[in-house]
Amino acid sequence: MNPALLEVKDLSIHFGGLRAVDGVNFAVNRGEILGLLGPNGAGKTVTFNLISGVYKPTSGEIWFDGKRINGLPSYAIAALGLGRTFQIVKPFSTLTVLENVLVARGITRYPAPSCLWTSWKSRQEAQAAMALLDRVGLADLAQRKAGLLPLGNLRRLEIARALAVGHKLLLLDESFSGLRHEEISQLEALIRTIQQAGITVLLIEHNMRVSMALCDRIVVMEYGKKLAEGTPAVIQQDEQVIEAYLGRKGESDAS
């Protein structure tokens, strides 16, 4: 079996003259946590949107679990077992936390006509959704309207929803941003248990300490291109990466 679950080959997308992603290659191996890092505007979220089918690439290929997925619509890619969260959280605000997860649990139902007569209000469905909420620590807020939750809980809700969809791969887009210190360590532990459950994780992260500790490998992007790839230890020593984040030695221009 191909060790790579997700392969991105020479991926590019151009918005007019802007090359948001420009010839990027990388692979996510089965069972690993791969971090996608880079300064603001490097094209990380655009890469996520390309993988999950929100945008169609200008050129290049995306292979997921032995299947070419570029060109497929988002909902079809999701159905292959790829779940994602959003940098700017997108809860279904007037639905309860439990109902939010039930929407995601419907992933297998939506393509078939049986979604017209299968009830989502069954005890079975509720139990399965509660199990997911329990995993992210939101079980006691299940009946609360999602629109009323603070950011930290919304990020966890997004992960619960993504887990219901992504039994193979999770894309986590800055799930740690805006979280308090203890929330960060809880989330780190959660992502480790997700990995132990056999789910591959691709995450975008700005927090260096978190990504160095959590990721098995890291891909660094800058200006739409891949700058470096390797284990956290290698990345930490990489001249180009240090330069991208901190600037060149002896450079006086602070901008």
């Binding site: 999701a78 779940g83 279904f92 929407v103 939506y110 929803r161 219901a164 969809v165």
Partner: peptide
């Protein structure tokens, strides 16, 4: 978000 959960 709905689209990312398999909803066309």
């Amino acid at each position: 978000a709905a689209t990312s959960m398999g909803i066309s």
